[in-house]
Write a protein that binds this DNA or RNA. Structure first.
Lengths: 211, 211
DNA sequence: CGGGTGCTTGACTAGCATCAAATGTAGTGG
DNA sequence: CCACTACATTTGATGCTAGTCAAGCACCCG
């Protein structure tokens, strides 16, 4: 009976064929609702169906640092051990699907592929962050968000300025200033009461900024 | 015959039981010798036996960014696809052991565990880098190096100042200034003609700096 | 001795954090 | 309908940190 086996267990002893998941019911979440917290026992991994999730840690000094945002189709919650090392929260109205380690039913989840994808994301983020200049980082962020809405004239970032700041290692003020710079350069427009709806005016200029 | 299968192949199609490795002969490397380069076909993963390896990328502007240093026992070279996305070089006299995907012989390699370990490393590094203040970053780096030599009075970092700078997203000058500050604070001594041999004087003070 | 390399130090500057305040929008209650 | 609060974003003024440019030092080797 594998039902109580945790994700961490087969991450640690991954010599075994990954147990097939039992497809659980999707979970609907309100904005800022917690999915799991640091220190908890890791029982499942998740796939985002709609909306977005933020994965973050709190430093000893209480500062929040957002490791990643997960959008539609992306996986999160895979840990090295069987204890959560970070927090997961819904950014907005979100629906996620949990997968637990249980008896073989359907096709097994490709945990290795998920881990490698997340690793590639984390490495790319390292480059973005150290690639100093606040404007570059914000441009890279906007580009990343735009890639999630291919072909759309406009899209909603959904994250607050402080989410973006904690993601990019900047302050809220600096992020706001960068957005106004991007507007002044006619790279994008911001709409919506919270100015989170982006309309890209000059995609090439945006890309040029991230280089 | 799986002999020509690449790492990327079973990373992408990882639903299969990881092929058991053929234990290849160790490779001895001189300082700065290349192990693989961006764009090459990924044929093997490696484990460090002695010495150290730097994994890095070059930005479009030609800047080097070091993603990680791999020390004794650590694995590198596992890619999402079958093409190298980064460079690997020996930092110093180094011996590594390659593992190729070939017919089942010995125990299979736990690729998932390797991927998750590297992911955890990458995430930790994100925190270190965004945790502003050059001194904190350098302190965290020294601590990381010290952890690789538990119980040793002294140890050789082996990396040059510019390696450290490219790893932490700082400049050589800033790194040097931080080391002198650490000396002034009597946290450590530096010995050797290249000032790369560290003697920790106040481990607690070092840890306090990284918080 | 001269040149090369890697580390350190100094002077100056640009860019981001910090502190503070203004703006805009929505919601509440009189 | 308007005053008032609450919240997120934006803007402004100022200081500090790390980057930049430049020079100096220590060591090694031909």
């Amino acid at each position: 009976m594998l039902h109580d086996q945790t994700i961490g267990d087969y991450a640690a002893g991954g010599r075994h064929y990954p147990p097939a998941p039992a497809r659980d019911q999707p979970i609907r979440l309100k904005p800022d609702e917690t999915i799991y917290s640091e220190g908890e026992h890791a029982r499942a991994i998740y796939q985002v169906e709609t909306g977005a999730v933020r994965i973050y840690r709190l430093t000893p000094s209480g500062q929040r640092y957002i490791l990643s945002f997960c959008g539609k189709g992306e996986w999160f919650g895979l840990e090295t051990g069987n204890v959560r090392t970070d927090f997961a929260e819904a950014v907005c109205e979100t629906s996620i699907r949990p997968f637990r380690a249980s008896q073989n039913t359907a096709a097994p989840i490709d945990l290795l592929h998920i881990a490698l994808t997340n690793l590639a994301k984390a490495q790319h983020k390292q480059l973005v962050i150290t690639e100093q200049s606040a404007l570059k980082r914000v441009a890279a962020f906007v580009f990343e968000m735009a890639e999630r809405h291919p072909g759309a004239r406009e899209f909603d970032m959904m994250m607050s300025r402080s989410d973006i700041a904690d993601y990019l290692g900047l302050t809220v003020e600096t992020v706001a200033r960068c957005f106004t710079k991007l507007r002044e350069k006619h790279v994008l427009c911001l709409n919506g009461k919270l100015q989170r709806i982006v309309r890209l005016l000059d995609r090439d200029a945006l890309i040029a900024l991230t280089v």
